[in-house]
Write a protein that binds this DNA or RNA. Structure first.
Lengths: 341, 341
DNA sequence: TTGTAAAATGTGTACGAACACAATACATTT
DNA sequence: AAATGTATTGTGTTCGTACACATTTTACAA
C-alpha cells in the first residue's frame, strides 16, 4: 500500500532504523490510515522466542501464606506455557535477609526477560532495582510495595484501608464500647512498617466512628518466645476486652488457638487470609472474620502482567490494589469453590 | 517421525478418517511418545476463521444491573478481538417475555458459533436449548440457572447460600432479637423462585443460629404500585423491626430511599449489587451491606468460556458459582478500584 | 568516471498448524 | 491386463509476522 517492501514496513514498525525519511512518512501514513493493529498471534508465532521470568519469593514451605503465592505462580505458568513463557523460581529464606540478596543476585545473573519479586526485606532488595532498571529488565513487585522504585507494576492491597475494614467489621459486631487489641506477631522490624499501616487504619476508623473504644497495641516478636504467652495473657484477662485485630495471616490462627486454650469466648477476632488453619478457626467460630489478601492472586497477576508485557506488549497497570475481601463463615465456601476468580 | 506425511498426521489429529490402521497406529504411537500438544497459537493463525458469539441479554438501558452485564461482555469482546472473536448482542425487553422468544429466534437464525444467554424467563427460554443442542451450538447460561438443560457452562451464584450470608451479616450487627423482614420487589412470578431460594437460606440461618428472631416476608409486585408505600409502611411502623433483607439489586436502593423518606433509622439493611444508587446509600449509611452478584464478571466469564472453547478447545467448568462478595462502606472503594478482578 | 562503504530497500524462509487438492496404492470389475 | 473406483497418502499454500540475508541505491572520495 505504501509502495515499499515488507522489510521496510517491518523496520518502521519495530523502529529498527535504516529507513529513509521518505519511506518512513509513506509507511506511517498508511499505518495511520488503516489503523494498523499487529496480529499478536502471528507475532508470537513469528518471533518464536521463549521468555524467561524469574520469580523471587520466600520459601513456600516456611509459611502457608507464601505457599499460596507459589500456587498462583504455578497457575500462571500453566496458562502461559503455550506462549513459550517459562517461570524460573528463585526461593529465599523467609527468616534470612542475606538469603534474599544471594537469591536475587543469582536470579539477575541468569539474565531473565522479566522478574517478579516479593521484596519483603526493604534494605536488601533496594539495590537490586537499580540493577534491574539499568539492565532494562522489567520487574513486578507484589505483596510489599517499595515506593522509591518504579516497577512495571505493583500488586498488593491498600493496607491502611485494610485496617479500616478490620475495624469496621469489629465495630459492626460489638456496639458496646470497651477495649480492643491490635496484635502484631512479627520477627522482622522492617516489615512492621506495613503492619503499622493497618493499625493506623484500624485506629483512625474508631477515632472517627466511635472514640469511646480504647485500643491497645501488643507487639510480639515470636510466638515461640517464652514471654509470648504471658504477655498475651496480661491483656486477655481484662474483662473489658471485646476484640482482637491480628495484623498477619499466620498470627491469626495462633491467636485463635490461644483463645481456645484459655477458654476465652465472646471476643471478636479479625484476622487475615484463607490459610487452612484460619479457615478451620473460622468454621468453628473462633475467628469471626478474615480479610483476604489473596497472595495467590497477587502472584498470579504479577506473572500475568509480566507475560502480557513481554509477549503482547500490553501495558500493565502501575499499581493494582486488590479488593479487600471479607471472608465469613457463610461465604467461605463460595470463595473456595471459585478458584482464583 | 512416524514415517508419514503431515497430511496424514493432520487427519489423525482431527479424526478426519481416511487413514489406514497401520498409519493410525504409527502416528498415535509417536503422538503419545512425544506427548504432543498442539500449538494453539499456530492453530488459530492457520485456521484463520472468525467466531461469532451471540449474547442474548435484557436491555441494559432498562436496568443498571443488566448494564453491568453488558459492560462485562464489552470487556470480553475487547480481549478476544485479537482472536477473531466477534460478539453480536441480541437485546430483549426485560419486561416482555415474548420479546425473549423473538430475540432468541433471531439470534439462532444468525447461526452463531456460540451463544451466551441470560434466560430470565424460564418458559420462554426452555424450548431454545433443544434447538441449540441439536444444532450443536455451544451455549452458556448466566445469572439464572436452568437445571434441565446441559449448557457448556452456567455462571452464577449459590442463591441459598447468598441468603445465608445476608442473614449472617444481619445477625452480626443485631444481636438482640426482634423482627426481620425479607423484602421481594418483583413483577415476575417465574423469577420469584430464585428469590425464594435466597429467602430460604436467610430463614434457615436464623432457624439454626437464633430462632428467637421473627422473620416476615413482604412481597411487592412493583414499586410504582399505589399500595406499595402502604404495605411497606405497615411493616416499618413496628418498633420491633430490626432489619430488612432485600432480595434484588434494584429494590435495595428503593427500600433505602423509603427508609430515609420515612426517617427510619437503626435498621440494618442488606441488599444486592454495586449499582450506583446502592453505592450512594452504602456510603451514606442507609444501606449497611451489599452482596455482590457481580453481573459484569458473570457475563465476562460467560464470553470467556465460550471463546476459550471455540478458539482453544478448552473445556469450560460446567458450573461456576462466583464468590459471595460482601461489600461494606470501608471496602467498597477497593472493589471499585480493582476493575473486574 | 569509477570505486567503495554506508544507507536503504527488498526477498525469502520460518513459525506450527489448517486445509484444499494432487497423487498414489489397492481392490474390483471388465 | 487394462480400466475404473475408492481408500489412502502426500504436497503446497496460507495465516501475519519476524528476521536473516541479499540486493540496490546513494553519497562521497579518488
Amino acid at each position: 500500500m505504501a509502495g515499499v517492501s515488507a522489510g521496510t514496513v517491518d523496520r518502521v514498525l519495530h523502529k529498527r532504523g535504516r529507513v529513509s525519511d521518505d519511506a518512513l512518512q509513506k509507511v506511517n501514513k498508511i499505518l495511520d490510515e488503516i489503523d494498523y493493529k499487529p496480529n499478536l498471534i502471528a507475532r508470537t508465532l513469528g518471533s518464536n522466542r521463549t521468555y524467561r521470568i524469574a520469580a523471587i519469593i520466600p520459601n513456600p514451605e516456611q509459611d502457608p501464606y507464601w505457599a499460596q503465592s507459589r500456587a498462583g505462580i504455578r497457575q500462571a505458568e500453566a496458562e502461559w506455557a503455550h506462549y513459550n513463557v517459562i517461570i524460573e523460581p528463585y526461593i529465599f529464606d523467609l527468616y534470612n535477609k542475606e538469603s534474599l540478596k544471594e537469591v536475587a543476585d543469582t536470579a539477575f545473573k541468569a539474565n531473565p526477560d522479566g522478574i517478579l519479586i516479593a521484596p519483603i526485606f526493604y534494605h536488601e532488595a533496594l539495590p537490586f532495582f537499580e540493577l534491574f532498571a539499568t539492565s532494562l529488565i522489567p520487574f513486578v513487585l507484589f505483596n510489599t510495595n517499595i515506593h522509591e522504585v518504579k516497577p512495571l507494576s505493583f500488586i498488593g492491597q491498600n493496607l491502611y484501608q485494610s485496617g479500616r475494614v478490620g475495624a469496621e467489621l469489629m465495630h459492626m459486631s460489638k456496639q458496646e464500647s470497651g477495649k480492643l487489641a491490635v496484635l502484631h506477631i512479627n520477627e522482622d522490624l522492617d516489615n512492621s512498617v506495613h503492619l503499622l499501616e493497618k493499625e493506623r487504619g484500624f485506629r483512625d476508623f474508631f477515632a472517627e466512628k466511635n472514640p469511646s473504644f480504647e485500643i491497645i497495641t501488643l507487639n510480639l516478636e515470636n510466638s515461640e518466645d517464652p514471654s509470648f504467652e504471658q504477655k498475651l495473657m496480661e491483656i486477655l484477662v481484662d474483662p473489658k476486652l471485646k476484640g482482637i485485630f491480628v495484623s498477619t495471616s499466620k498470627a491469626s490462627s495462633i491467636a485463635a488457638s490461644f483463645l481456645i486454650k484459655k477458654n476465652k469466648q465472646g471476643l471478636v477476632l479479625v484476622g487475615y487470609d484463607m490459610l487452612e488453619e484460619n479457615l478451620n478457626h473460622l468454621r468453628s467460630g473462633s475467628i469471626d472474620f478474615l480479610i483476604n489478601q489473596n497472595p495467590k492472586r497477587q502472584a498470579f497477576l504479577g506473572i500475568n502482567y509480566l507475560a502480557d508485557h513481554l509477549v503482547f506488549r500490553k501495558t500493565a497497570p502501575s499499581t493494582d490494589l486488590l479488593p479487600l475481601e471479607v471472608i465469613t463463615r457463610e461465604n467461605l465456601q463460595s470463595y473456595l469453590d471459585s478458584g482464583i476468580h
